[in-house]
């Protein structure tokens, strides 16, 4: 593309953004900056869905990085993070997480043809397993309950950098495994994630709740809810969407804390940005959700009779 002769010739009459009176060495350095291949950083990343881009330094998953995902809806967040790259042709693998709901994965947009699910029956060979999977698969979801020793963790992390895969450590929100506890054990275990994504329930949950309650069932839901879920009433409605607040911190380029409000899952089971109560509920999605709910409800009497 760039002919050396052409570049030398253009040094004498540089374009407007490079002043012509600079010393040649400086001008050359600036020119190098200009013609540096810009695709390089892009090749080192994997895309994420547009609403999640604000959480990550380049708006994408950096290859060779490790993400820790904790909090409410960690499983959904992990699925949402891998979906775009998975549809782009990358393979994804889930190590552990025997409870993972595959329908939820499909709704998030994970390509099922490029998904592998690996059970870990014998924990003691876990490090070897993770290293083997990282070798050939771009996106690896690792169950945070898989115990790895500090030295194994270092080995896995080094392998990760070398192979350019992305490791997402997921803490499923099951009762019994309190997030802070295993986060502590992991810190002791030597994991040093590049990005830590903590999802929490929103600080002002009431507004979304009441409007959604009205739109679905025609009556307001009484009582304050601490959850971000909307759509469910007392004996009516269906779970429609959940508002979460996601905090991203980390090391290096991800050190600057970021925060996003998301709908996770939204009415289609995927992820969407949360903006405002009035604009977040689109008429079409309400219609969609209520027909779902209707068909769900209609089943009842027919069976009972």
């Amino acid at each position: 593309m760039f002919d050396t002769g052409g570049v030398t010739a253009s040094l004498s009459n540089l374009p407007g953004n490079l002043p012509g009176n600079l010393p040649k060495s400086v001008a050359l350095r600036r020119l190098t900056e200009l013609v540096r291949p810009v695709a390089l950083a892009g090749q080192r990343t994997l895309p994420v869905a547009e609403p999640l881009a604000g959480l990550l330094p380049d708006g994408a998953l950096a290859r060779g990085s490790m993400l820790q995902i904790v909090g409410v809806g960690a499983t959904s967040l992990a699925l949402a993070l891998v979906a775009a790259a998975s549809q782009d042709g990358s393979w994804s693998a889930v190590i552990g997480l025997p409870e993972l709901g595959l329908v939820a994965a499909e709704e998030h947009g994970v390509a099922l043809t490029r998904l592998a699910l690996i059970e870990v029956p014998r924990w003691r060979r876990a490090a070897e397993l993770v290293a083997a999977v990282i070798d050939g698969i771009d996106l690896v979801l690792l169950d945070a309950r898989v115990p790895l020793r500090a030295i194994e963790v270092r080995r896995v992390t080094a392998r990760l950098r070398e192979q350019g895969a992305v490791l997402l450590m997921v803490e499923p929100g099951l009762p019994g495994g309190s997030g802070s506890q295993s986060a502590l054990t992991q810190a002791a275990g030597g994991w040093s994630p590049d990005v830590v994504l903590t999802s929490t329930m929103p600080s002002h949950p009431d507004s979304g709740q009441s409007v959604a309650g009205q739109s679905v069932a025609g009556q307001s839901v009484s009582g304050q809810s601490v959850s971000g879920w909307s759509g469910l009433g007392h004996g009516h409605g269906v779970l429609r969407q959940r508002r979460v607040t996601i905090d991203a911190t980390g090391r290096g380029r991800s050190a600057r804390p970021r925060q996003l409000e998301l709908l996770l899952p939204d009415v289609h089971g995927a992820v969407d940005g949360w903006t405002d109560v009035s604009s977040s509920i689109k008429p079409s999605s309400i219609a969609h959700a209520s027909t779902d709910a209707l068909s769900f409800l209609r089943r009842g009497p027919r069976v009972a009779g």
Binding site: L112, L117, I118, E119, E128, A132, G136
Partner: peptide
């Protein structure tokens, strides 16, 4: 496919699944 074949060697053929 190569990575999954290795994983099968570690955890057993029945433990590597696809949807």
């Amino acid at each position: 496919a190569r990575a999954l074949a290795r994983a099968q060697g570690i955890v057993g053929v029945a433990s590597v699944m696809v949807p």
